[in-house]
Design a protein around this nucleic acid. Structure first.
Length: 465
RNA sequence: GUCCCUAUCGUCUAGAGGCCUAGGACAAUACCCUUUCACGGUAUGAACCGGGGUUCGAAUCCCCGUGGGGACGCCA
C-alpha cells in the first residue's frame, strides 16, 4: 500500500507556524515512504475563506519547499460529489432529515447547560424502529444529520498518542449538511479522505474530538479507516496559546525577519520530534529519519532563541552570492544601492558569523555602501589629536600599499608603532572613521574589502590634509 | 458541567523496568582564543508535578490527585 498524506488547511488566514509544522510532518512522512503528499483547501466556510489566504498558504509552503504531488483540491469545487454521497446516505438510512429549528436547538442547549449536561442533539428526528416521527413542519428546510451508532465505543490507535477511545453515547447525531444544502466540515473531510485514498491523517490534536465522528462516518460509508497521528500544539514563546490576537504570525513573517527557510525547517522538525541527540540536519536527512514514533505527545513552547541560533548557524553555511542577493534586496528596500560599492558577497562573508539574521546582516554591511557619520561622542572619545596624526600617517602609507589583507595589517601595525600608539589606539579610530563604529571584523579584512579608493576618501574627509 | 489529551533542567528534548550519580541542544555563568566586537573552544550550575500501588528494582507500568491544553456549532 503506498502512503498518501494530505495537508488540509482552511484558507481563513496565513500559514502560521503550527500549520507549517503539520505540513512539514505530513510532507516528510510521504517523502520518507515514497508516497504522495496532497494539498487540499478546505474552503467550505464561504464567509471566512478568501483567495488571498489561499495564496498566502501556497506562498508559505513554497518558501519552505514543501511541494505537494496532487492538488490543490478545493472543497467548494466538489459540492456535487458531496451531494451525491448525502443522497446515498439518505437512501441507505445512515443519515436523516432533521426539521428542528435554530430556536428549538438553542432552547435544548440552554436546558442541558442549566442541568450541567453536555449539550447535544437529542435525536428527536432520528428514525427508529417502532417510533413515530412528527410530521415535517411546512416550509422548513431540513438539515441532514448522520445517524451515529448509539452504543459501544469508537477507538483507534493514534500514532502519537496511543489508544484513544470514545463512547458512542458521548457523540450525537451531528449535522452533515446544512438546511441550505451545503455539507459541513466533518462530512467533507471524510468524503475527501476516502476519495483521495488517504492512508495517514497527520493533523493538529484539536481534531482528536472529530476523529471518532469521522471514523463512524467512514464506517457507515464502508470506507477503510486511515491511520491517525495527532500532533500537539505549539505554544508561543511565553508559553501562552498562539492565536491571531496573540503571537501567531505568518511563516512569511519569518522570511521578512531575515530567517532562512532551512533554519525554520530544521527548528520546526525538532519541535515535537526527535532523533536521539541530533539537533542540526537538513531536509534530506530529516526525511530519512522521520517517523511517527518519535513525535512528542505534549505541547511544545516555541523558543525564538534556539531558532536564532540555528539561523546563525545556517547563515555561516550559506552561499555568499545568496547572502549578497538577500542583503542587497533588504538594503534596496531602505533605499540603499549597492552598485558601485565594494563586492557585496565579500562584505557579507566578513559579517555572516556576527549576525543571526539577514536583516542584521544588511544593517551590518550598510556602512560599506553609505558613509556613516560617527556620533560626536565617539569622535570626542577616540579621535584624539594623537589618533588623527596616526590616521594621517596611515593614510599616506595606505596610498602606496599593496591592497592585500596581510600587507594592510602590516601597514596599520607599523604606523601604530611609528606613531607611538597601541594597536587599539589606532585601529579603533580607524574603524570609527571608516564605519562609524568602534567594532568591526579584523581591520585588515575591512580595509581590503572596502577598497583603496573608498578608504582613502573616508580618511580624507575626517582627517583633512 | 461532561468527554478527550497531556506532564523530565528556564526552553526543545533523550529515555520503551536495571545501561540514570538522568544524556544532548538553546539560553545562563565562568574561563580560553582575539591588541576591537563577534565567531569558536572548554567548563559550571540547572529537571523526572504530588501521593499511593505493582516489582528484588520505577523517570519508565497501574490508580488517584493537581497543573496545563482541547472539544462539546446548521465553524473549520
Amino acid at each position: 500500500m503506498t502512503v498518501r498524506t494530505r495537508f488540509a488547511p482552511s484558507p481563513t488566514g496565513f500559514l502560521h507556524i503550527g500549520g507549517a509544522r503539520t505540513a512539514l510532518f505530513s510532507w516528510a512522512y510521504a517523502r520518507r515512504h515514497g508516497g504522495t503528499f496532497i494539498l487540499r483547501i478546505e474552503d467550505t466556510d464561504v464567509a471566512r475563506s478568501t483567495p488571498e489566504a489561499v495564496q498566502a498558504i501556497l506562498d508559505g509552503m513554497q518558501w519552505l519547499g514543501l511541494t505537494h504531488d496532487e492538488g490543490p483540491f478545493y472543497q467548494m469545487q466538489r459540492m456535487d460529489r458531496y451531494r451525491q454521497v448525502i443522497a446515498e446516505m439518505l437512501e441507505a438510512g445512515t443519515a436523516y432529515r432533521c426539521y428542528m429549528s435554530r430556536e428549538e436547538l438553542d432552547l435544548l442547549r440552554a436546558e442541558q447547560e442549566a442541568r450541567k449536561e453536555k449539550p447535544r442533539y437529542d435525536g428527536r428526528w432520528r428514525p427508529e424502529a417502532g417510533k413515530t416521527l412528527p410530521a415535517p413542519p411546512a416550509g422548513v428546510a431540513p438539515a441532514i444529520r448522520f445517524r451515529n451508532p448509539k452504543d459501544g465505543v469508537v477507538g483507534w490507535q493514534d500514532q502519537v498518542k496511543g489508544r484513544i477511545e470514545f463512547a458512542n453515547a458521548e457523540l450525537d447525531d451531528f449535522v452533515i449538511a446544512r438546511a441550505d444544502g451545503t455539507p459541513t466540515y466533518n462530512f467533507c473531510v471524510v468524503v475527501d479522505d476516502r476519495d483521495m485514498d488517504i492512508t495517514h491523517v497527520i493533523r493538529g490534536d484539536d481534531h482528536v474530538n472529530n476523529t471518532p465522528r469521522q471514523i463512524n462516518l467512514l464506517q457507515a460509508l464502508g470506507a477503510p479507516v486511515p491511520q491517525y497521528a495527532h500532533l500537539s500544539m505549539i505554544l508561543g514563546d511565553d508559553g501562552q496559546k498562539l492565536s491571531k490576537r496573540h503571537g501567531a504570525v505568518s511563516v512569511m513573517q519569518y522570511e521578512e525577519d531575515g530567517y532562512l527557510p532551512e533554519a525554520v525547517l530544521n527548528y520546526l522538525a525538532r519541535l515535537g520530534w526527535s532523533h536521539g541527540d541530533e539537533e542540526v540536519f537538513g531536509m534530506e536527512q530529516f526525511v530519512k529519519w522521520f517517523d511517527l514514533d518519535h513525535i512528542t505527545a505534549s505541547a511544545a513552547q516555541f523558543n525564538t532563541e534556539k531558532l536564532n541560533w540555528l539561523n546563525a548557524h545556517y547563515l555561516k553555511l550559506a552561499d555568499p552570492q545568496r547572502l549578497a542577493a538577500e542583503a542587497s534586496r533588504r538594503l534596496a528596500a531602505q533605499g540603499v544601492a549597492v552598485d558601485g560599492g565594494p563586492d557585496v558577497a565579500d562584505v557579507a562573508v566578513l559579517y555572516r558569523d556576527r549576525v543571526s539574521n539577514l536583516n542584521e546582516l544588511a544593517d551590518a554591511i550598510h556602512p560599506f555602501f553609505v558613509a556613516v557619520v560617527p556620533t560626536a561622542e565617539l569622535v570626542a572619545q577616540h579621535l584624539t589629536e594623537a589618533a588623527r596624526k596616526g590616521l594621517k600617517a596611515l593614510s599616506d602609507r595606505l596610498a602606496g600599499c599593496t591592497w592585500q589583507a596581510a600587507d594592510l595589517g602590516q601597514a596599520v601595525k607599523q604606523t601604530a608603532a611609528e606613531s607611538g600608539l597601541k594597536m587599539p589606539q589606532l585601529a579603533i579610530p580607524l574603524r570609527i572613521v571608516l564605519l562609524g563604529q568602534p567594532q568591526s571584523p579584523s581591520i585588515d579584512a575591512v580595509l581590503e574589502v572596502m577598497g583603496r579608493e573608498r578608504v582613502l576618501a573616508r580618511l580624507a574627509r575626517e582627517i583633512p590634509v
